[in-house]
C-alpha cells in the first residue's frame, strides 16, 4: 500500500536543536517517523507526515519540541464553529458527559 500523506507544509512542529539532549524519547513515541537522530541531536525528517498529536513534545524532558496540538477532525471543527460539542467523530466527545455523544468512530 502506498504511504498516505496529508497536506504539505502545514504542520506546526518545530525542534529547538540547541535544547535537545539526544535522549531519544521523542523518536520512540512518534507514530509517523517524523523525527530522526542526527548525531546527538534530533532533526525533523518528514514534517508533512506530522499529525500534530503532541506525543513528542509531551515526552521531551528538555522542552525542545513545540507543536500546536490538535485532532485533525473536520466534524469537530464544524461542531466548534456551530458552538456544539459531541456528535460525529470519536475524538470530539465531551468526556464529562459521554452519554450525550453521537457516534464514536475509533
Amino acid at each position: 500500500m502506498r504511504k498516505l500523506s496529508y497536506l504539505k507544509n502545514v504542520a506546526t512542529l518545530t525542534v529547538d536543536e540547541a535544547r535537545c539532549t539526544g535522549c531519544g524519547a521523542c523518536l520512540e513515541v512518534c507514530p509517523h517517523e517524523v523525527l530522526r537522530m542526527n548525531g546527538r541531536r534530533v532533526q525533523i525528517q518528514d514534517k508533512d507526515a506530522c499529525m500534530e498529536c503532541g506525543a513528542c513534545s509531551r515526552n521531551c524532558p528538555a522542552g525542545a519540541i513545540s507543536v500546536q496540538v490538535g485532532v485533525g477532525c473536520a466534524a469537530a471543527v464544524i461542531n466548534g464553529m456551530l458552538g456544539r460539542s459531541g456528535a460525529g467523530c470519536c475524538c470530539s466527545i465531551d468526556p464529562d458527559n459521554p452519554s450525550s455523544q453521537g457516534p464514536r468512530c475509533c
Binding site: 496529508y6 497536506l7 502545514v10 507526515a49 500546536q68 490538535g70 485533525g72 477532525c73 473536520a74
Partner: peptide, 20 residues
C-alpha cells in the same frame, strides 16, 4: 469524505483547517 479525517490516523488539525 472530509468528515472521515477524524477517523483517519494521519491528518493534522492545521491541515484539516486549511482544507476546510
Amino acid at each position: 469524505a472530509m468528515n472521515f479525517t477524524g477517523a483517519s490516523t494521519y491528518t493534522s488539525l492545521s491541515g484539516v483547517k486549511k482544507e476546510m
